Amino acid sequence: MSQPTFFQPYISTAVTVDSSLNSLQGIKKNTLSSNPNSYLLAGTTGDGLAPPGYGALYIGAIDGATGSTGSGSGTWYNFSVPSTWNPQQTSCYGPDILTSGSGPAGIGDVALAGTWINSSGTTLGWYYKGSLSALNSDSSGSVSEGFQCFQATTRNSSPANYTYLHSVDGGYVAGNYTTSGGPIGLSLNSGPGAGSFIYNPLSKSQINIQYSDSAKYHSAFGIWANEDSSYTVSGGASYEQRSSRRMKSAVSTVSKAFPDAALGRGMLADVDPITGIAKNIHYYNYNNASSDNASLVTHFQGIYYMGSDVYQAPFFAVDASGSIYGGNAYIHRLSNGKFSENAIWQTFEPTSTGSALGPTSVAGDANTGIFYGGQPFASIGNNESYLLAAQNLK
């Protein structure tokens, strides 16, 4: 089970901003292309958490080349949400390829989702459906057609200070709202008054996800449209902070690095996007630690269906000593519709340039994420052995 090849930093140089905190937060495989190594990557050129920053899209192969617009042999676009919104920052999280066309790598229309910061410092969500080519060199925000602004409503019916639209697939968006900020890609988006939802761009409505479990907070970072018109989400469930001595170092590490993180487990669930009702909910601890072992923080950052009833979820985990891990979890859908009790865990090993501790999204053989130290990476490998192993999970 070989390690992928990491390319880092994987960034756009098409625009110049006063920040080194670039990020990659989403990926979709370009099935329109005859090249198996063709992807649409989404992220931020600049700071993903605060001004300045622009939405970033990479279209093409994941490789070690350097082009005129940045890393890789493909093409980078940088764009802003409409200038009429008076944005201070734009960040792109979730991409989806809708149609073929005359754009780069044969892509026509896309659906995109992310966050933007207004003049008052509020983090809002945005959704775009339209031409990929229209966003080329649009860092001034001249394009308004196809954009929607969205601010989530909290449990007490007040506007959320932080709205995150994470992932888009099959016409719906998975999102979260919180009452306090913090690192986006690696945090759990949880805290007092937090919640997860499905956003419907057609009705411009928020459908809160309804979970039938005892978790205090839930997050939904990834969404996948299945072939039977059902939807599967990935994320996590967080609980009351435990007082175990073994947890103290992990709690300290997480709270310092990721202010709005909470202890919990990775989650997969099927969600009805119309009613919000979740079923087949299942939780995972890193390396399949027993459920009564509270020494782990595990969170799923996205989701991809590999085929053969196997789902892939990039994860972030912290153990009792405060060590941080990242990689992909492989989970089997059983014949009864439920998910396998355990997962196969692919943990990314440190490389000569550091540790890939924060995978943010996955599409089969490819990942996006953040290395220790903050630089974004894109990786490519062969995950067939994990796919085969996961098919045997019960």
Rank of each mutant, 00 (worst) to 15 (best):
S142W: 06
A262D: 06
Y93K: 13
S355K: 10
V362R: 01
T75W: 07
R242L: 11
S133I: 14
F371Q: 08
I27F: 05
R242E: 11
N367P: 05
W85T: 03
P376N: 06
M306G: 05
T90L: 09
H218K: 03
K129C: 04
G67A: 07
N287A: 14
G373N: 07
S379D: 09
P183L: 14
I11T: 12
Y372H: 03
Y286I: 01
A329C: 08
G181C: 05
N208L: 13
A356E: 10
G53V: 02
M267Q: 11
P87S: 10
D63F: 09
F147M: 14
S34F: 02
S71Y: 11
R333H: 06
T232H: 05
L98W: 02
P52C: 05
T16E: 12
P259R: 10
L112Y: 11
Q151F: 06
Q206C: 11
T31E: 05
Y162S: 01
S139K: 12
G354V: 09
G125C: 03
L268K: 00
D63V: 01
G374C: 07
V318S: 13
P9K: 04
G276E: 06
A317K: 00
G266C: 02
W85M: 01
D228N: 14
S20W: 04
S91Y: 07
A278M: 14
Y305F: 11
S291V: 13
R265L: 12
A269I: 15
G236Q: 05
G337E: 12
